[in-house]
């Protein structure tokens, strides 16, 4: 057991070292969220607020999309860092791990923890932008957001690790990731409220893990900004006729991660 954890730890540490050695990427990674917040969010806020100053009940559009932009960063970074494992396959390093006497599941857990950590660090950096768009960061909000960010990062990283088990080359992987990421982002409620959607779209939203990711973070941010629950629910969606809640989000994200990580461990254990 101790040896098992040591292997997970050393794989995890390797990802963090890679991230740290490439920290320019971390700064560059902030430009996308800034574009969404300041340009897209800022522009939409001013055109939506002809006359009255907010989207609904005291929230500007840019404040509305703030949790969505954090989720976007997590979607892209967590899934994308699985590309490292595909590169390991392509450039041979994976063989060094596969020929060692370690269970295949360590690769799955080590890599998903690594991917989740780097994506979570990246997303946490976005919080710094909050005050510039009128999101008042309180210690409680941060304390609630950090574990939420980690959970969401893990759930999304588990999608990435399943995809790496299926692809041997970067091209195929990148194609599928782009194909998955964009719809996941657009249909997650990151950019628009989900209350009034056509029913086919609402079905897709319910099946999209990113919807729960956006929802849990938005609930934390808006609740801490003293926005009434009624208003928050109007931005959200329902399952089986009930409004989702932060707890439902968390349970679904935990379950989703568990299922996908188990699947990935199975896929990696299958001998060629």
């Amino acid at each position: 057991m101790k040896a098992y954890l040591a292997v997970i730890w050393v794989l995890w540490r390797r990802d963090l070292l890679h991230y740290w050695r490439n920290r320019v990427r971390a700064i560059v990674g902030l430009t996308m969220p800034m574009l969404w917040l300041f340009i897209f969010g800022g522009g939409m806020s001013s055109s939506l607020s002809q006359g009255n100053t907010s989207l609904i009940d005291g929230i500007s559009y840019v404040q509305f999309i703030f949790p969505g932009v954090i989720a976007m960063s997590l979607i892209f970074n967590a899934i994308f860092s699985a590309l490292d494992t595909v590169k390991d396959k392509e450039f041979g390093f994976l063989k060094e791990i596969l020929v060692a006497p370690v269970p295949r599941s360590t690769i799955v857990f080590g890599r998903s923890l690594g991917a989740a950590s780097t994506a979570a660090i990246q997303a946490t950096l976005i919080l710094i932008l909050g005050p510039f768009i009128g999101v008042h960061l309180t210690p409680v909000m941060i304390m609630l957001l950090l574990p939420a960010i980690w959970l969401v990062a893990l759930a999304l990283a588990s999608i990435g690790i399943v995809l790496t088990a299926l692809f041997d080359n970067q091209e195929g992987f990148q194609f599928v990731v782009n194909f998955v990421n964009m719809p996941m982002f657009f249909l997650s409620g990151a950019l628009f409220p989900l209350g009034q959607l056509p029913s086919w779209m609402e079905t897709v939203v319910r099946l999209n893990p990113a919807s729960y990711a956006v929802d849990v973070m938005r609930r934390i941010v808006l609740t801490q900004q003293h926005i009434p629950l009624d208003t928050i629910n109007r931005f959200s969606f329902t399952i089986f006729g009930h409004n989702v809640s932060a707890w439902i989000d968390i349970i679904i994200l935990v379950g989703f991660s568990a299922v996908l990580l188990t699947l990935a461990a199975r896929l990696f254990s299958k001998p060629k």
Partner: peptide, 29 residues
């Protein structure tokens, strides 16, 4: 029981020499 040097290189090019060896040592307990 085995060690292998593959035909094509399988080092982690982003790690140092020491880190590559240390990684290997942990894998083998």
């Amino acid at each position: 029981k085995i060690g292998i040097i593959f035909q094509e290189t399988t080092l982690d090019h982003k790690l140092t020499a020491y880190e590559n060896l240390n990684f290997h040592g942990v894998l083998y307990g």
